[in-house]
Simulated assay, not measured.
Amino acid sequence: MSTAITFDDYLALTQLYADYAIAVDSGQWDLWPEFFVDDCVYRLQPRENFERGFPLATLSFESKGMLKDRVYGIQETLFHDPYYQRHVVGSPVLRKADGERFECEANYAVFRTKLSDASTVFNVGRYIDVVVRTPAGLKFKSRQCIYDSEMIPNSIIYPI
């Protein structure tokens, strides 16, 4: 279980989750890497692979530089039908804290809206995160997006 956490820390953690969702839903992709420390991990992985300990992931990045490369790809090289996404994220559940590092989880659902279609459920799962305290505030050291379904529509372009 977790050690004591202050109300201010929990509020900052909750704000980090909310700000992340707003940033990735806004289409301002340059904001996304700034939620992470330089030596971060970001993985998007099916639940079955995660639970079995299999390394195969849909997306796997091992540094902030790799996240910035993905942003460049989204903005400059990937061609796809445009769509909006909207995250609904549960309150983070703190699993462990030591004052400088927080291990937490939160459920998420991402809805996708193509310009000429109705909104649909796009991706559902849970975040498994390691958040660290930095001079610039709380940042993700690791974000694993573990999605429940083996099936994903088309491809995943934008961050989850």
Rank of each mutant, 00 (worst) to 15 (best):
Q28D: 08
R43P: 06
Q85L: 01
N154F: 14
C40E: 11
I146W: 09
Y108N: 00
W32Y: 15
V130P: 09
R95C: 06
L67W: 05
I152G: 06
F102L: 03
P153C: 15
V130Y: 03
L67D: 08
I152T: 14
L94Q: 09
L11F: 13
Y10N: 09
D30N: 02
A23G: 01
K141A: 13
R112D: 07
L67I: 10
F140P: 01
K141P: 12
N154W: 09
I74Y: 03
R52G: 01
L115S: 12
A23T: 06
D30K: 02
A109D: 07
R47I: 06
R43A: 09
I146T: 12
H80F: 13
Y17W: 03
V89Q: 03
M1P: 04
I157D: 13
D98K: 04
R112Q: 15
E62W: 04
S142Y: 02
L11G: 15
I128G: 07
E62A: 10
N49C: 14
E48C: 04
G65H: 00
D129Q: 05
M151F: 15
P33Y: 06
P33W: 01
T77M: 02
D9Q: 13
M151P: 04
T77V: 05
Y10D: 05
R43W: 09
T3M: 05
V71L: 07
R47H: 07
T6G: 08
R112M: 06
S116D: 14
E34C: 10
W32G: 00
H80C: 13
F122T: 10
H87S: 08
T58C: 11
S26L: 12
A109L: 05
E48Y: 08
H80M: 02
T3C: 01
P82C: 03
F102N: 02
C40M: 15
F35V: 02
T6H: 02
R126L: 12
Y147W: 13
S116E: 14
Y72S: 11
A106Q: 00
H80A: 13
N154I: 11
I146E: 00
R133T: 04
A57E: 00
I152K: 10
F111R: 03
M151A: 14
K64E: 05
L16S: 01
L94A: 01
Q85Y: 10
G65E: 08
I152M: 06
P92G: 04
Q28R: 13
L16I: 04
F140V: 00
V24Q: 00
D30G: 08
K64T: 03
V131H: 06
D38M: 02
L44T: 12
Y17C: 09
E51Q: 01
C104I: 04
S116Q: 15
E100I: 09
L59H: 04
A57Q: 02
N123C: 09
G53A: 04
L13Q: 01
E105A: 05
A12G: 11
R70Q: 07
A21Q: 15
S26Q: 03
D148A: 08
T77Y: 11
D117R: 02
H87I: 08
A109W: 02
A4N: 12
H80L: 05
I22T: 14
D81E: 15
P153R: 14
R52N: 02
C40N: 14
